[in-house]
Design a binder for these strands. Structure first.
Lengths: 335, 335
DNA sequence: TATGTATTTTTACGCGGGTAAAGTTTTTTG
DNA sequence: CAAAAAACTTTACCCGCGTAAAAATACATA
């Protein structure tokens, strides 16, 4: 920087000031620096910059499973917002593993980020590790809530998801039974089941929760295996299946197809299937999947906005914030 | 570190040596440091560490579109390898945009990474930007080859993909026509079309390439729209469709379903569909998709291994390396 | 033109650790 | 047990930049 300062005819501290905020130097000075910048392609050493800053311009983004297009989609929005706000986003995926999530939090702490957007693994998370992390780094949770951790949580209102699908399904046909994983990784799954039970009770209908076995993040395969077994046993209490999430539904639909069971709302159909999330592939299933959609954009943007506000507030909110967005029912062909 | 050194009773330079390579200090010394490490949770400042290193222990991973589960899957393998080799992987997605790819390369250069694994956008890439980058940072290309850039390219042998599917399809039924995007983003698509043409010629069969319009990375939707149009116009020259890639096939299958066209190899089926990639969702389509699978693991591991070798060689190979892995035919229900 | 304000320059120090050089201690080897 | 080798300690300087303080300029206003 010293050399570059000489070359541009400006003192080093002023050049430093320019790189921290080009608007903080006089118009004429800025031009001279920018001209020099074109002649020599100098750019400040990011490590030296961050060494003295008590807080960097980095933002950490952690998702539980990047191979899930749902998260990939959210990440895209978030990254864009961070960049246009002058931050450098760093993306991490826990790949469904607690050990990896912990490693990520550790290396993230070393990065001294201005803030972190964290979608935790959920049930599999190491609660203590997350708590420790959140108390050291300004963190906004999204997707999966963990009570009391982070300064805010932004997510979807699971009750709204289930109430809309159940209302629609009961209004247009047999009341649904509810398909879920027995040990869901994600806390939203539990909330959805509870919502289903409570809504069915309000409607004075018999709830039927079907819990299928399976571990990990291969939801489609779990849904498919579970579906095959259910269909073989002919064990379904109704002709309408509401899946906890789209990936499970994708697997279940594939099982239905394999068993030659026509799915849809037409008269010749034996079964209706609906679900929650509006997974990017939901419109390409056969038949296309009726589902309750996340407000992807609102969740992503609100999460980022909240983090920026948190950063501006010095990393702490007086009170933990919680914001849930309602679902939007997407009617397609499966129900 | 000075404080910690005092606390552990070891001199600072030795402690520094320990953190650079725990094996480089005497057994007894290591133990004393590690004991102190448990009492005080000190860890070196990554910015200070990297400031003086001419080369960091970071590895950049750039993919064109992280929302594509194909890349998400590869990334998972690569990240793991990097971590266990003591590197810190940083993941970036270009999200299909040239400007973003360029930004990523720029900020990557500032990170002074030991090496970079780059899957470029392909046709959309800014060739000059990539060339400049590769000449400054040890880079291994994967997935999409760009002639002459990077020190090595690791990918799949497109000819092997197409020859296996075409051979299978012609042996078991009508010869296939070939469905592709008119302006594919990815150079593999062109190689696949050329392979199709050449293989059909060898077999003395009439090739039929069907190019559909559509831009961007929403391949499924493009395949679906193109499929709907083709089916409506009844414009297919054969009952066998070979798609350039699985995502296109997923869209095409959804169009077939919508049009009530039975796909599969059974006697009651009107059409066969096959494809290439073995996308993570290919087994859940209806019917499940017959496809040529990448050797995901080999590609990922060979790419990482090549990069490590490149790093050890000081960032340059005498000659650009190129390694292609053959496909493995996966027979499912669609053809 | 004089005065006040906004910028810039000079000067100097610090961040946290890499690393080289010389001297000392410990361990290994013959 | 002596000599050689290996590991460690001391000392000192460096990396590239942020930043504070004081002095010098530049610009704006009356």
């Amino acid at each position: 920087m010293a050399d570059f300062a000489v070359a541009s005819g400006i003192s080093r501290p002023t050049v430093s000031k320019y790189f921290n905020d080009p608007g903080s130097v006089r118009e004429s000075t800025r031009k001279r620096i920018e001209e020099a910048l074109e002649r020599f392609d100098y750019r400040p050493n990011i490590y030296a910059i961050n060494q003295n800053r008590q807080m960097t311009k980095n933002i950490g983004i952690v998702v539980p499973y990047i191979a899930d297009p749902f998260f990939a989609e959210i990440v895209r929005v978030i990254e864009r917002r961070c960049i246009s706000a002058g931050f450098s986003p760093s993306l991490f995926s826990s790949h469904g593993e607690q050990a990896l999530e912990n490693d990520i939090l550790e290396s993230l702490r070393a990065m001294k980020p201005a803030g972190v957007l964290l979608a935790p693994l959920g049930r599999v998370s190491d609660k203590k590790a997350i708590e420790t992390f959140c108390s050291n780094v300004p963190t906004v949770l999204f997707d999966s809530n963990i009570e009391g951790m982070g300064e805010a949580f932004i997510g979807s209102d699971n009750y709204s998801f289930v109430s809309q699908t159940v209302e629609y399904l009961t209004r247009t046909g047999e009341p649904p039974c509810f398909l879920e994983m027995r040990h869901p990784a994600n806390p939203n799954a539990n909330k959805r089941r509870d919502a289903y039970l409570s809504i069915m009770q309000n409607l004075k209908l018999d709830p039927h929760v079907i819990s299928i076995d399976g571990e990990g993040w291969g939801f489609e395969e779990i849904g498919r295996q579970g579906g095959l077994q259910l269909l073989e046993e002919n064990a379904l209490p109704t002709n309408t299946m509401l899946c906890s999430n789209d990936r499970l539904a994708i697997g279940f639909l594939s099982a239905c197809y394999e068993k030659g069971i026509r799915v849809g709302r037409g008269g010749d159909c034996e079964m209706r299937v609906a679900s929650h999330d509006d997974h990017p592939f939901a419109r390409f299933t056969c038949p296309s999947l009726t589902t309750a959609a996340h407000d992807y954009t609102s969740v992503s943007e609100h999460a980022v906005a909240t983090l920026f506000r948190l950063i501006d507030s010095g990393g702490r909110f007086e009170q933990r914030e919680e914001k849930l967005f309602p679902a939007k029912l997407i009617l397609r062909e499966s129900a």
